[in-house]
Amino acid sequence: MNILDDLKMQYKMGGVAHRLIYWNVGCFLVSLVFFYDFKSGSFYFPDWVALSTELSAFGLKPWTFLTYSFFHDGFWHLLFNMVVFNFASSLFLTFFTQKQLLGLYILSAIFAGIAFVTGYFVLNLSASIVGASAAIMAVLVAVTTYQPLMNVRLLLIGNIKLWHITAVILLLDLMQFRLDNTGGHISHLAGALFGFIFIRVLQNGTDLSQIVTGFITFFTNLVKKSPSTPFRKVHKNYAKPAENRASKIITKDKAQQQIDEILDKISQSGYDSLTKEEKEFLFKAGK
């Protein structure tokens, strides 16, 4: 199995968090090819990718309220966000589902985008924004709202309460609000607010992530082709021994049993714990 097959398998077997990271990294690679000026050493994102505060831009390109949250203005911007997202999403998935994580990411990005545009309209400023920081902040604040006293072990520091980490990050945003990247800080705080609202509403019995789930299900069913049922002619072969049929069922059961054992191993120790043979078997079984 080559590296590409290994990445495909990790994407296929990984959860929503891993796939969102893959999408962010993929969009960054795309931006290096199409939106990076090597002479100036900076990115220039068009208004059909980045979220602009100009009505003529976001009014005609409403999808930018989401696409901006998958692009990053630099490698370190991407790396820091993905490290924090991996940390926050792993804690979030301890208590909530994959669908809730996806719903929170998408809805918080849209909410933060609206707050960014509104804030700059009030301030009479014009700018554009990219980055997943707002959605990541929503995930971090959401799990902190649900379990603020959770102990988190940090390298060189030791055990610390989760709410301490979140409070420091929020405080840094507030301190830099008027210094630079005002639009970014507006979206960060808006994302944090949405994460808090998401959990409070969920605790009252309303799961906002179902909006995203329902939307995805609707369009999936819309584009899905209706299954065709061609005419099949049935032949009876009385000369075929019954043992062959039984042996196929046994072989299938053994294969399924091996798949289940590999999946259990992934859930306990992670995908990287698999041997080369197990990865190849799982990749072939998934085709």
Rank of each mutant, 00 (worst) to 15 (best):
A192K: 01
Q100S: 07
K161P: 03
A192C: 10
T144Q: 02
L172S: 11
L102S: 03
T145H: 10
I110D: 03
V83Y: 15
I106N: 00
R178W: 14
F198C: 14
F196C: 09
H72L: 08
R178T: 15
L172N: 07
I157A: 06
T94V: 05
I129M: 08
N151Y: 08
I199G: 04
A109W: 13
Q176C: 05
I186Y: 02
T166D: 08
G74D: 06
L172H: 05
L79V: 10
G113T: 01
A88W: 01
L125I: 02
H164S: 13
T97S: 15
A138C: 06
A138R: 07
T182K: 12
F198R: 01
I114R: 10
Q203P: 03
Q98I: 02
Y146R: 01
A138Y: 07
T64H: 02
A112L: 02
L66F: 09
W63V: 04
I114W: 13
H185N: 10
G119M: 09
D73H: 07
Q98F: 02
Y120P: 00
A138W: 08
S128G: 13
I106M: 07
V168S: 02
L123E: 12
V122Q: 14
F92E: 02
N81T: 00
T118F: 11
G183L: 02
L193R: 11
L101A: 01
F96W: 11
N159F: 05
T118V: 14
D73S: 08
H77Y: 15
Y120V: 05
F121H: 12
Y146E: 06
N86D: 06
A115P: 04
G183V: 00
F92N: 01
F111A: 09
P148C: 06
L78G: 05
F70W: 11
F65D: 01
I114M: 10
D180S: 09
L125W: 14
I165H: 04
F121L: 12
L78Q: 00
A138L: 07
F80T: 13
T67D: 03
F198E: 01
Q147F: 11
I157S: 08
F95T: 07
Y105E: 03
L79A: 15
L107F: 03
G131H: 00
L79N: 03
W63T: 13
V117H: 04
I157K: 12
T166K: 13
L202Q: 10
L66Y: 09
F71K: 09
S187V: 02
L104H: 08
T182N: 12
Q147S: 14
M150E: 15
M150V: 10
